[in-house]
């Protein structure tokens, strides 16, 4: 009979899993403890082990591969790359992620499943529909994601780093979403201001833009920016006059490249927000960006946020990449790092 065969296999699996648990260090137990706790931020800890270092892999492959309907390739394509695995730290009143299956066949097994992925599993059901809290948690995360698109970066934050502001021809958020081409061009006034204010032909030009997530800039700029400045100093590289671009797309780098002719340009820009992280920042880097630069010539470090590449680490890493770009006089797929 099928069922007795299943039961035997389940038994074997359970014994194996139990053995593994006893042999292995306490990591799995920590996850279980996190999931069982009641602390407001426990959910984040419980998911900490779920996303390995592989997010960086994607940044180095998919993100610069250009646009397309291909889900496999477009997940992080050009203007709006994003991938993340962590809950927002302010999961707040939704509390800890835990199984809601009332009588699971194997309780501990279920806890292990939850610890292995940030996907919303073990959520149970009312009939065939989700439970109320799960449904509302989903709406909460969607609201946060949408909010980061329509949000703005605060002036005091920009002032703190002495960033003056220029705009692209994006007009307003709705138009920004419909017309990526207009987010690639700085307005005439903006271009004049850049010419009047910025050092020409800098070694490294730093530009910050809200892109698709103002929250990403708000949450990460301070740490990334400070460590990037430090890193450039350590590498012996000279930065030009930094500024903020409102309504920017990745390829705005090319227009700025024409205006200032930098050797290298670093654009810190908010990514397309996901439900599990709406505060993810990307650093796009290019050697001598100019009009007509192809996407595959940009190097990207994506997924910069608390649960992905930590912002402080990212800043230091960007400095290293920029140095390699200047040494090899190239960037993107041609860069050997």
């Amino acid at each position: 009979m099928q069922s007795s065969k299943l039961a035997l296999e389940q038994l074997v699996d359970r014994v194996m899993a139990e053995l593994e648990k006893r042999i292995a260090p306490r990591a799995a137990d920590q996850d279980a403890a996190g999931a069982a706790g009641t602390g407001e931020f426990g959910g984040k800890a419980a998911e900490g082990n779920a996303n390995g270092g592989a997010v960086g892999e994607k940044a180095s492959t998919a993100d610069v591969s250009g646009a397309g309907g291909d889900k496999a390739a477009a997940g992080g394509a050009n203007d709006d790359s994003a991938e993340a695995a962590e809950s927002e730290a302010d999961g707040g009143s939704f509390g800890v992620r835990a199984s809601h299956v009332p009588h699971p066949k194997w309780e501990e097994g279920l806890t292990e499943l939850l610890a292995s992925t940030p996907a919303r599993i073990g959520v149970w059901r009312a009939g065939t529909r989700p439970l109320t809290r799960e449904l509302l948690k989903f709406r909460y995360d969607h609201a946060a994601a949408v909010d980061s698109i329509y949000g703005t970066v605060s002036q005091p934050l920009l002032d703190r780093f002495g960033l003056f502001t220029v705009e692209t021809c994006y007009g307003n958020t709705e138009n920004y979403l419909k017309r990526p081409d207009q987010g690639r061009i700085i307005t005439e006034e903006g271009a004049a201001l850049i010419r009047a204010t910025c050092k020409r032909k800098p070694q490294v030009q730093i530009v910050v833009s809200d892109g698709l997530s103002a929250n990403a800039v708000s949450a990460n700029l301070e740490d990334v920016y400070m460590s990037l400045i430090d890193s450039l100093r350590v590498q012996g590289l000279a930065a030009g006059t930094p500024f903020f671009v409102r309504g920017g797309r990745v390829a705005v780098m090319d227009h700025i490249g024409e205006l200032l002719e930098p050797e290298a340009l670093v654009l810190l820009i908010g990514e397309r927000p996901g439900l599990v992280s709406s505060k993810s920042l990307s650093a796009y880097m290019c050697y001598r960006p100019r009009l007509g630069t192809v996407e595959s010539s940009r190097t990207v470090l994506s997924n910069i946020h608390e649960g992905g590449t930590p912002p402080v680490e990212a800043g230091a890493h960007i400095g290293t990449i920029v140095r390699a770009m200047l040494e090899q006089r190239t960037s993107g797929v041609h860069l050997d790092i």
Binding site: K71, A82, E83, A85, A119, R120, V123, R272, L275, V276
Partner: peptide, 9 residues
């Protein structure tokens, strides 16, 4: 799972 693809966002 719950319509939220945690990889493709």
């Amino acid at each position: 799972a719950m319509a939220d693809d945690c990889m493709l966002n």
